[in-house]
Design a protein around this nucleic acid. Structure first.
Lengths: 195, 195, 195, 195
DNA sequence: TATGAATGAGAATTCATTCAT
DNA sequence: CATGAATGAATTCTCATTCAT
């Protein structure tokens, strides 16, 4: 079978899955629907993915892979923790805000079940939180961040704010740009509510 | 009809649903399982709930109802916005941390699908965010909170931090008390990361 | 419970059943729907009828009872077989055409199953065919009807034509009067197709 | 895909459905029963038919298709309307009388509900009546049939007699041949009851 | 008689997954 | 590698009927 253009068959299946699952939800999307959109036979899916659940995990892997690699690249160009945090916020919101379908997957569909979330948090999200915590530590060492905050706790708080913005963007069906929130988020994260 | 023990049949069904769904997830829980645990016939479920999905919604309604009523009561005893925020944080973490099964439902199972989340955010969560925004506005008027923050944005940020703590607590299977995070959360929300 | 006006509770149930079953068909009509329309509790139905099927039979009995008693009265006023046949045709089409809901029951719903039709044909319909056959015999004795026709066969043929007219009237949703076909039917039954 | 014995899988399912439904009635026949008799999995039924109701319709289509094609072939060999009518009567009774199971379907099970009968009368039965009416018109033009009869009315009357014979044959559980009635039917249709 | 809450058997249909080609 | 017809387990929901009050 000839390669078609930019994507291998595996990629086409993943692309199709993002669209279908974003549109109808994981449970309402059948393997047959994904196969049809990808232009392959139902059975072919099983040559590339062990089962439907693994396909969903792969979706996340692919997305998170891009996320982290771009994140690392971006962080390297920043020196101070403060700058790094700014970049992370911007990157997070930009990447999530780039593809609504994918965002629906990561913000909603991927959180189907405890079992599922366990997997996620133990792997990629855990790594992401680790990076955030490192930045916090650096900020504290640089004297720029308060040192009375537990870095891991702070990382989770940061993630919580970013994640809520992302989910809120998905649920508000307005046509806003998610990354437009970056400045406010940074502002809030640094300064908090108080005067 | 005689009361069955402590609760009505409807309550028993809801209680059973919380346990079963928390344990195995919404999709893996069959109506028959819930009926069995509730000690009623399968069909009886449908006398009280239109279908399985409505049962899930009712679960949320009941939980959120308690949440909001207790929240309002708690807020009335607080005068300043600062105090109110402290109470909200404590209440949120205490209530969620009170019942792990129920928390699994609210933090994970209830977020199954876009359709589902839409419902939630449009109704009860929306109301909750409104209350938070009111507190922020009050704080700004009292001169205690920064006035350069959009209250609605701030409300979402607060919610994001609380929600992340709750989810994190569910996913960390350690036996910690969720409300033990209250002080740190308040600290972070007021002061932010910066020095 | 006070009698209400013209009908006993049993009659009210039968009346309600005719309307509901005509509208949605026997299988799609629930006992609860009939009870609701009749203004009684579900369980009350079972004080008057053994089960749902018997209710349907009772519907037919009531209708056929009227049919036959009016038929006998009408026939007594007619002397010749020819006149009797005319009266039967008119009566059949008039009675069926009088109540569309009831007609739907007798022409469609009552023919649900072999089992059901067996019951009907062995009882009331059989009696009706017997009356028709008697008229044919009388006509043959009077020298007015061909004597080479088997009376029972002739009776079935007559019934076939009447029944088809009735069914056709039900299915054509136009607002015609069924009894307007009487003259044509009589004409056809007597003279046949040939010149 | 290899042919399974004499018929395609779809045909086997239809054959199985005829037997099961004739025996126990449409509503008492489960899809599982049909699948079992056809030697396929339950789900396979749904590869060929949208649902149970469509399966029933398909049964009728197949039967009626044969009916009409054989009817047309038979009619072509007949010149006069009188001969055509004779052939139609013979064919109708022969075809229905050929397969008792199928006859039960067409005479009883297919008439389940108004909804169902509507479908039938609007399609195939309507076409059949049209053919009959054409024959009547031809007979009138040939001067062989009375011209004071409305052809459509006459067609319905003919159908009524044939249909009643068929139903009667089903209900009489004796082992007679339905086509043995042909001569009497023709005799009656041409000459009527009168001398 | 009358009620209507409760029962629980029963059935259609879906769909992830397999495997012969 | 690819196909897609076939599988059959699995589950929601309905509703006739009962029976304690």
């Amino acid at each position: 079978m000839a390669r078609n253009g930019d994507g291998s068959k595996r990629e086409r299946i993943l692309d199709a899955a993002v669209v279908e699952i974003a549109r109808r939800g994981y449970h309402s999307t059948t393997v047959a629907m994904i196969a049809k959109r990808a232009g392959v036979a139902d059975g072919t899916i099983y040559l590339y993915f062990k089962n439907k659940e693994q396909l969903l995990f792969s979706l996340f892997d692919r997305a998170m892979g891009r996320f982290i690699s771009e994140g690392k690249a971006s962080l390297e160009q920043a020196a101070s923790a403060r700058e790094k945090l700014i970049r992370i916020v911007e990157l997070h919101l930009t990447l999530v805000g780039q593809d609504r379908d994918l965002a629906i997957i990561t913000q909603v569909e991927l959180r189907h079940s405890l079992h599922f979330m366990d997997q996620l948090s133990r792997t990629l999200v855990g790594e992401y939180l680790g990076i955030l915590a490192q930045v916090v530590i650096q900020g504290q060492q640089e004297g720029d961040f308060r040192s009375d905050l537990d870095p891991v706790f702070a990382a989770k708080s940061i993630f919580g704010v970013l994640d809520e913005m992302a989910t809120d963007w998905i649920l508000s069906h307005r046509n806003t740009r998610l990354e437009s929130k970056s400045a406010s988020v940074v502002e809030f994260l640094f300064g908090g509510l108080g005067c």
